[in-house]
């Protein structure tokens, strides 16, 4: 792993480059998701109370946990899609593992995500009293989520370098995708139709990840075996697929970026 240090350097660069010179610096990475969380909390937690879980007063916690998972997912993809083009000078003139570019972008988002979760999880556990051995599954669930997002990020970054429509399509798709994801609702509380529930719970690959994170922190329970199996398979498929696609397509990167 001669390039482990390169990866470390790339993460450091990614983390500091974007907001260098601004007063808040890296704190900006937290401000945007916190503002977003505040807005959704106001919208769905206070103004519209959508069909939520059992105890309405704890609904904001339910919402925010789903939201941080979504923010990690969507921000990682949105910022990795143009990342190879943004590092064009490097890609054109130097030879190094190009995977390190999208990987560093996702890693920076992971740091943000873990910080947000570290703020949110103790509050949730304290209020809901959901301190349960199931929490020990959290590292596994987060590892699967990271692998899943990393695989997709590798794919969208290399695809966008060749086909410049990928990033705009992605940003357009993420909005409806957000509303289809079980972030501010639980599928069983908004529909009884089996097909609709199947789509909401299983066709959307983000749903089982949100469900599993929420189960262990908010629910204090072990996720269903089906959910755990799903996220393991989804993470493996996404990561292997992303790496294979990246390796196959990266040859011409120096020419196209």
């Amino acid at each position: 792993m001669a390039y482990r240090y390169l990866f470390e350097q790339m993460v450091r660069r990614e983390l500091r480059q974007k907001y260098k010179g601004s007063a808040l610096g890296v704190l900006w990475y937290l401000v945007n998701p916190l503002v977003l969380m505040g807005a959704y909390y106001l919208m769905f937690g206070i103004i519209f109370k959508v069909a939520g879980p059992d105890q309405p007063e704890q609904y904001p916690l339910f919402l925010l946990i789903g939201l941080v998972v979504w923010i990690f997912f969507s921000q990682s993809l949105l910022s990795s899609a143009p990342s190879l083009l943004e590092h064009g000078a490097l890609v054109r003139k130097a030879r190094f593992p190009r995977e390190s570019i999208p990987a560093s972008v996702v890693t920076v988002q992971l740091v943000t995500f873990v910080v947000l979760l570290a703020l949110l999880a103790p509050v949730t556990i304290a209020i809901r009293g959901t301190l349960d051995p199931a929490l020990l599954l959290l590292p596994l669930v987060l590892a699967c989520l990271f692998a899943f997002v990393l695989g997709l990020a590798l794919a969208v970054s290399v695809l966008h370098a060749y086909f410049r429509d990928v990033a705009p399509i992605l940003s357009a798709a993420l909005l409806p995708w957000f509303f289809m994801s079980p972030i501010f609702f639980e599928p069983e509380s908004i529909t009884q139709r089996a097909t609709a529930r199947f789509v909401l719970e299983w066709v959307n690959p983000v749903a089982p990840f949100i469900g599993s994170v929420r189960d262990v922190i908010y629910g204090g329970a072990v996720p269903q075996a089906a959910d755990l199996g799903y996220i393991l398979v989804a993470a493996t498929l996404a990561l292997v697929g992303g790496i294979v696609l990246f390796r196959r397509m990266q040859g011409e990167l120096a020419v196209v970026v």
Partner: peptide
Amino acid sequence: AGFGRDFSGRENIFLNGALH
């Protein structure tokens, strides 16, 4: 190529060395 413009010369030495 690939110097981070906002980084110091020293930081860029680390980054560039890592690239190689």
